[in-house]
Nucleic acid binder design. Structure first.
Length: 939
RNA sequence: AGGCGCGUAGCUCAGCGGUAGAGCACUACCUUGACACGGUAGGGGUCGGCGGUUCGAGACCGCCCGCGCCUACCA
């Protein structure tokens, strides 16, 4: 295996950058060298100790252990950028990797597999054998995720990799459960929950997705028992009438004055129904008055009340002490309370109920109605409100401190707009149902005695001891079958991963984390709950910042999902993919499949799109564009390595006196860039940072600095100017690569290792200091000089293009300008000749008529530029061209004039704005005068 | 129903009180000794609509239209 990071410096770089030749080799080397491994020791020293290093910790949002990364996960690049940036700043950075057991999702996958291959259910196997299968599945597929994370180049400390079901983390979950129980924050209660009949488990509110569908609203007449009339109720679920235990009307409704207290007979309902309290009731139910449930204006103003199968009705039932009739079996079929309909599914029962009601004449109307039904987030099955006994976390006492932590700024949410959403949810928080009727997960540490007395304990032995004390004798205990919601263990992730409940050095050094970075879609699921648990168990917030990034969508803006078939595997982008692996929509556009783009291109693209909006649309075109950018950077380095004298260059401080204005300018720009990148990163503006790096490297370094430096670099002897130029070029590349490194670790490391640096500050670029800007290199004077040269160069190029002069044809230049401008420009004469392909430059104070004859002319702020065309000049075309220039200037001047002529503007606008406008107006006037002059000479 | 967000060049998106920007795409010319994954130049926008604040408004305020998301409810 090749592990060298310092390939032979004499070996020229390949002409084009090929990530596949670089990335796997470098990652293996980095990991082997332990560059990602963190050590808490320096952060445990006193802050004023010279060895102290500020901790900077991010725990990864754990992906599903048996899943596979999709483009959304590739957004981890944000965390990698932050970690690499802080490590280079000298902070003690830890990025802690790990995976999550993903209870329902994983169990479902294994159950499906079991059904497919062996035609068995988990019950056929039994709990123990089934769990063995899941663990085997986890072993088998668990590596895929970590391989993907490595391929993306992430600087994760693999020595600290965690899994939510590790023994230690599982023990921590039990510890939290027991503590919450002891504090009265964990309780068991019977109430309606969301039940997925397919998964056969309870779900939390957040795991239910309401989806609109077309349905019907039926009117059904219930006859009064005393025969004095009937009451018509409306319902979207007629079959639930079998579970009705009352009809509610508004107490103030004139239509029903005196009806409250009367009884109606439920059509179709069996004569004996068993309530949740194991009492038997019949099929006559009372009319109750309820102002909360009933809206007089809706329908008939009378509502059937089904406490067993509707959340509002459940509350109504409590208010009026109504019995609760459960109609459902756990699999969603109707039970004996449904009488003749027992054993049928709800849908089948509905049809029959409607038929029977029609026949009896009780059905009074039917109309179309749009309603939203909750569906299981995992399997899309319609979720039923279902009465059952579950474990709950009392949320309000935990939410209070989590609200205050954000109010007081101990945790800051970025972008700020999400703060309001967080507050709103926290303020209206409901108790959290945490038990799930699954097998894969953390089994609830509760044991039940013969009389169902509950013993919550850290172990079976502890529970047995408590039971013995309670009963005064040994009894057989039965453990709670259920497991905890996956998000319950995820909520503990920021501290259990660091060793809690043990007091570890990691916990001391790295808690609270610096930032929690994730998609906004799990703000409630995860972020809010980590806040509550972190504060409660650690006494301190789990992280100082919460950065919520936008969601990656496909190129049409749709959320990526397996169902839609638009999921993109980041590895397919990095390594390339055959056409059959592409999303359907992309197959037409890329019939040959995807070419490999490399991890750096993907990383840079995602970082550049990580703006503060809500959507990130996946775009292959942009990735291709940034691959071209990295190739450009590669070639700039290739050029430098080919041109620079072999051996180490001098440090820039040694050659300062020999530097050209271009050298000083690019060094000044580098400082400005360094400051800008740090500022942007501090505010999580990765998009801004990538844009400024891109602009610097391509537009300023490649297009101007390198081009301007070529004459000096081509010197055959080691002239002072050449030495200074080489030092500058290598220094700028060194530092620009460091700035780019957090985004593109591979290409930057590969190039950096080959640079002939004066001083190599570290064995890897990821441990080199991140540039923060050194103001002593700021040089506005040189910047102005370069600006002047660019102005002249641009004018010549523009003339060439405008008169369609072959770019390869050399021209002579006549320039009219002040002595000062001439002095500036002559410092770049060689470079200018190259850049504009000019043979010779004649300077004049003023270009008179004799000098502009047969010339194409251009007037810039500082220069009159004339290109002699000896008989080639098309006078008419030239007139048109100049007229266009004139028009452009006139338009600009008109705008400024409009402002300057406005009395209000002159009175109220700041002075510097007015002065700027006046100066520009004067410039434009001068320019226009010269253009008019030129035009008149053409005639 | 309430909340949030978005609507700027063909596409994707920055800008958020002082002369309309970038990338990609497009057009013309160019195999100049790092790079055709390149170079040079260029075209293209009454910044969703209507009002208001201001000397000045994509930018701030109000209303409206369109799209998206979240929360809650809909017998």
């Amino acid at each position: 295996m090749t592990t060298t990071t310092a390939p032979d410096a004499n070996e020229p770089l390949p002409k084009a950058y090929d990530p596949s030749q670089v990335e796997p080799r470098l990652y293996a080397h980095w990991e082997q060298q332990g560059y990602f491994k963190a050590d808490p020791t320096p952060s445990l020293l006193p802050v004023d100790d010279p060895g102290y290093r500020r901790p900077y910790c991010i725990v990864i949002p754990p992906p599903n252990v048996t899943g596979s990364l999709h483009m959304g996960h590739a957004m981890y690049v944000i965390e990698d950028v932050l970690i690499r940036w802080h490590r280079m700043l000298g902070d003690n950075a830890l990025w802690l990797p790990g995976v999550d057991h993903a209870g329902i999702a994983t169990q479902m996958v294994v159950e499906k597999e079991l059904a497919r291959t062996e035609k068995k259910t988990r019950h056929d196997l039994g709990r123990e054998k089934f769990l063995e299968r899941v663990w085997a599945w986890k072993q088998q597929s668990g590596n895929r995720i970590t391989t993907q994370l490595r391929t993306l180049g992430f600087a994760l400390d693999w020595s600290r990799e965690r899994f939510t079901m590790d023994a230690k983390l599982s023990a921590a979950v039990v510890e939290v459960f027991v503590k919450l129980y002891e504090e009265g924050l964990m309780y068991r209660a019977a109430r309606l929950i969301n039940w997925c009949p397919r998964c056969r488990t309870a779900l939390s509110d957040l795991e239910v997705e309401p989806k609109e569908e077309k349905g019907k609203l039926w009117d059904i007449a219930y006859p009064l028992v005393d025969g004095s009339g009937e009451i018509v109720v409306a319902t979207t679920r007629p079959e639930t009438l079998l579970g009705d235990t009352a009809v509610a009307v508004h107490p103030g409704d004139p239509r029903y004055q005196g009806w409250v207290g009367k009884k109606v007979r439920l059509p179709l309902a069996p004569e004996k129904r068993t309530t949740a309290d194991a009492e038997t009731i019949g099929n006559t139910i009372p009319i109750v008055g309820d102002a909360i449930l009933v809206d007089m204006a809706f329908g008939s103003g009378a509502v059937k009340v089904t406490p067993g199968h509707d959340f509002n009705d459940f509350e109504t039932g409590k208010r009026h002490k109504l019995p609760l009739v459960n109609l459902l079996n756990p699999d969603g079929t109707l039970n004996d309370n449904a009488g003749a309909y027992a054993g049928k599914t709800a849908d089948a029962a509905r049809k029959e109920v409607l038929k029977a009601l029609t026949e009896s004449g009780a059905l009074r109307g039917e109309k179309d109605h749009v309603l939203a039904r909750g569906r299981c987030q995992r399997c899309d099955t319609v979720v039923e409100p279902y009465n059952s006994t579950q474990w709950y976390v009392r949320a309000k006492p935990l939410a209070g401190p989590a609200i205050r932590a954000v109010e007081t700024g101990r945790t800051r949410i970025i972008p700020e707009g999400w703060t309001k959403t967080y507050m709103h949810w926290m303020t209206n928080i409901q108790d959290w149902c945490v038990s799930r009727q699954l097998w894969w997960g953390h089994q609830i540490p509760a044991w039940y005695g013969p009389d169902n007395a509950v013993f919550v304990a850290r172990s079976e032995a502890e529970a047995a001891a408590a039971a013995e004390k309670h009963y005064g004798k040994l009894v057989t205990l039965r453990r709670d079958d259920d497991v905890l919601d996956t998000w319950f263990s995820s909520a503990l992730w920021p501290f259990t991963t660091l060793g809690w409940p043990e007091k570890t050095a990691d916990l001391d050094a790295y808690y609270p984390g610096a930032v929690l970075e994730t998609g906004f879609d799990i703000l409630f699921f995860w972020v809010a709950r980590m806040m509550m648990m972190g504060i409660h168990f650690m006494g301190e917030v789990p992280f100082k910042h919460v950065y919520l990034h936008a969601i990656v969508r496909d190129d049409k803006g749709e959320k990526m999902s397996k169902v839609k078939g638009n999921v993109v595997d980041p590895l397919d982008v990095i390594q390339g993919a055959t056409v059959d692996r592409l999303p359907k929509a992309a197959q037409k556009q890329y019939p040959e499949g995807w070419k490999p783009q490399g991890a750096d291109s993907l990383r840079f693209t995602l970082a550049s799109m990580a703006s503060q909006g809500r959507d990130i649309k996946f775009s292959m075109e942009r990735i291709e564009g940034y691959r071209a950018f990295l190739n450009k950077v590669w070639n700039a380095a290739r050029f430098a390595l080919m041109r620079v004298t072999p051996g180490a260059v001098r440090p820039i401080d040694d050659v300062k006196k020999d530097m050209s204005p271009a050298d000083r300018w690019i060094l000044g720009r580098l400082q400005e860039l360094s400051r800008g990148v740090n500022t942007s990163l501090k505010e999580y503006r990765l998009d801004e940072a990538t844009m400024s790096i891109y602009h610097f490297l391509w537009d300023e370094l490649c297009d101007w600095y390198i081009e301007m430096s070529k004459p000096a670099l081509m010197d055959t002897t080691a002239s002072p100017r050449k030495v200074a130029c080489e030092a500058t070029l290598v220094h700028v590349l060194d530092h620009a690569l460091r700035l780019l490194h957090p985004f593109c670790p591979y290409v930057t490391e590969e190039i950096w290792q080959k640079l002939p640096l004066a001083r190599r500050p570290a064995e890897t670029i990821q441990l080199a200091r991140f540039p923060t800007g050194d103001a002593t290199w700021d040089d506005p004077v040189s910047a102005a000089v370069v600006g002047t040269a660019q102005e002249l160069c641009n004018a010549v190029r523009r003339i060439r293009a405008d008169v369609s002069l072959n770019p390869s044809k050399k021209v002579t230049l006549r320039v009219g300008c002040t002595d000062a401008a001439k002095r500036e420009v002559t410092q770049f004469e060689d470079a200018l000749k190259r850049l504009a392909n000019v043979e010779a430059i004649e300077f004049h104070a003023e270009l008179g008529a004799d000098k502009t004859k047969q010339c194409a002319m251009m007037q810039t702020t500082k220069f009159q530029v004339a290109v002699p065309l000896e008989g080639l000049l098309d006078v008419e075309a030239e007139k048109v061209r100049l007229a266009k220039e004139l028009e452009k200037a006139e338009k600009e001047l008109a705008g400024i004039r409009g402002r300057l002529d406005n009395a209000g503007f002159r009175e109220r606008a700041p002075k510097d704005i007015i002065e700027k406008d006046e100066a520009r107006a004067a410039e434009l006037n001068e320019k226009m005068g010269r253009i008019r002059d030129t035009v008149s000479r053409l005639n």
